[in-house]
């Protein structure tokens, strides 16, 4: 009896973990690609918010979930384009531009939400779990791993694709070269700026998708500042995962676990820890994680530094 309820708890926790890690996986994978190209985009938080809002608004208006996710990605892409113009073309300080994108994301989405949606209160139908035949019937394991929605499953191909592109294609090699030694790319006649743009834009689309997941597959509503720091946590996931998409997947699961535990323990009346301690857990872990990877030799050496053509 005791074991059964323990297994139940674990099964729910693991299932919730993967689901809650999903927006982090998308956003951090995108950021990893972006940073591999030498561009530090701390505007992910703002991009995720814009993706969350656009996804919600589109799905709310059309009733179409797929369109919502598409809008989330497209808006992330466009926001990243604004960032890239400043970071790559104008060569503005990337941290400053990222701070601005975050403020714009928070301001724009809250402004539009309060103008158009605050009084409606109507949510959207969120993505339904997709039970995988037979596998989903396995006790404990089935509900945890094989009764998720499509986007949660999608994290695996996305991460593998990102890894494949970065480390097994010539495009990926060039992206990494642009982050390590842009001059070498420049002298071969390839455009550093173009590669950096592509990486920033891919990162933006994935960040927007991660944001849209929050409103279309997690909550069924947009709430102001719904990301509550997930974009920033994605930034530190990238460092902890040492700029590898596969690493991002597992580190995100670790952070997802904190969100999952927080939800479960908050619901449990027997737990007598102040709820703030649980709230602070992901942020504290981030700091501890950064202390653990103190040796940052594998950061792209041109991270955050604009490239001037000679």
């Amino acid at each position: 009896m005791q074991t059964a309820s323990m297994l139940d708890f674990l099964s729910t926790a693991v299932g919730a973990d993967w689901r809650l890690a999903t927006p982090l996986i998308f956003a951090a994978t995108g950021e990893a690609i972006c940073e591999r190209a030498g561009v530090l985009n701390i505007g992910v938080e703002g991009i995720m918010l814009i993706g969350a809002f656009s996804g919600f608004a589109t799905s709310h208006a059309t009733g179409d979930l797929a369109l919502g996710f598409g809008a989330g990605m497209a808006s992330g892409f466009l926001t990243a384009l604004v960032f890239a113009v400043f970071a790559v073309t104008i060569k503005a300080n990337q941290i400053v531009a990222g701070v601005a994108i975050n403020l714009l994301g928070l301001g724009l989405t809250s402004f539009l939400f309060r103008t158009y949606f605050i009084s409606t209160g109507r949510g959207v139908d969120i993505a339904r779990p997709l039970n995988i035949p037979f596998l989903s019937d396995i006790p404990y394991l089935g509900p945890a791993l094989f009764q998720q929605n499509l986007l949660v499953y999608a994290t695996i191909p996305v991460v593998i694709a990102a890894w494949g592109v970065l480390f097994r294609t010539s495009y990926g090699l060039t992206i990494r070269a642009v982050g390590e030694h842009p001059k070498a790319v420049d002298v071969t006649g390839k455009s550093v700026a173009l590669y950096r743009y592509s990486a920033v834009l891919i990162g933006g689309a994935l960040g927007g998708l991660g944001g849209a997941f929050l409103t279309l597959a997690h909550a069924n509503q947009f709430v102001e500042n719904i990301t509550s720091g997930r974009g920033f946590i994605a930034l530190s996931i990238v460092v902890f995962a040492r700029w590898s998409p596969i690493g991002v997947f597992f580190v995100s699961l670790l952070f997802g676990l904190f969100y999952a535990l927080q939800l479960q323990l908050q619901a449990d009346p027997n737990v007598r820890v102040p709820y703030q301690a649980l709230q602070a857990l992901p942020y504290l872990t981030t700091i501890v994680a950064l202390m653990l990877v103190r040796n940052r030799w594998d950061a792209p050496s041109m991270l955050g530094i604009p490239y001037w053509k000679a």
Partner: peptide
């Protein structure tokens, strides 16, 4: 909240 938009644009 429009003030955040103005701030963001100023910074940019």
């Amino acid at each position: 909240v429009l003030v955040f938009v103005i701030q963001g644009l100023c910074i940019l």
